[in-house]
Simulated assay, not measured.
Amino acid sequence: MLNRTYAALLRGINVGGHKKVPMARLRTLLEGLGHGDVRTHLQSGNAVFTADGGDEETLAAGIRQAIEKEFGFAVDVLVRDGAYLRAVAEACPFPAADLEPRQLHVTYFSAPVDEARFAALDRKDFLPEEFRLGDRALYLYAPEGLGRSKLAEILSRPGLTRGIIATSRNWNTVTRLVEMTRD
């Protein structure tokens, strides 16, 4: 079986001193699970690795269990292969090349989401900020950046993400993960 390259996206680690996961230990943990060519990006829970087959959900569950055993706390994990990450980047409905990377974000979801989940939001109230849905992803355009985004604050509320894992990355990280997962 051919090795495939994946990215593990860990949600909510190393933020404000909570759920500390040193990247060196994360790399060792992934190698201990039998994954190869393990690399991390930044301190925010992005790891790239190769694996001999296995589906994304099974890989994510293995990483989630290993993190809980190693560090003593639960962490949501999404695993996506390189082809998916490239497809999400290429499908961006906003003119990424014309925007500053801090203005554009992707939230990756563990399952498909539809417009009905966001029907209660009056999108006009947030202009010029806007979002669009993609394949298990939400693209957010926030011209003043995520820290000042009223729309991002609303979109991150638990009610809108109930029943699914959601984790966001800025456009720099989105494109870096695409580069790192190229086979």
Rank of each mutant, 00 (worst) to 15 (best):
I165A: 00
A89K: 10
E56Q: 13
S156E: 03
A142E: 01
G53Q: 06
F73P: 13
P95Q: 06
A61Q: 15
G32H: 13
I165R: 10
G159F: 10
Q65D: 15
E153T: 15
F109T: 03
A74N: 09
L78V: 11
R80Q: 02
V77M: 02
E115G: 06
L160E: 03
R169W: 06
L2V: 13
G163T: 08
R11E: 03
R123P: 11
T40M: 02
E100H: 15
T28R: 13
K124E: 01
G53I: 02
A166S: 15
K69F: 11
G134M: 05
L30V: 08
F94W: 07
A7E: 03
E130L: 07
E179S: 15
L10A: 00
H18Y: 08
Y141L: 05
Y6N: 02
D135G: 10
L30N: 09
G16W: 09
E129A: 00
C92Y: 00
Q43A: 13
S156N: 13
E68R: 15
R157C: 00
L29Y: 10
L177E: 00
E70G: 08
G36A: 14
L78R: 13
D135C: 08
T5V: 14
L42D: 06
G53N: 07
V21L: 08
R102F: 15
Y141Q: 05
E57Y: 08
L10C: 08
A87N: 05
A7T: 13
L9I: 08
L30R: 12
A60C: 11
E100R: 15
V48A: 02
I63S: 07
K20T: 07
A137C: 12
R176F: 04
Y139N: 01
T28S: 14
A116M: 05
S168T: 15
R157M: 05
V106Q: 10
N46R: 05
V21Q: 04
L99P: 13
R80E: 06
D37K: 13
G54P: 08
A83I: 05
L9E: 00
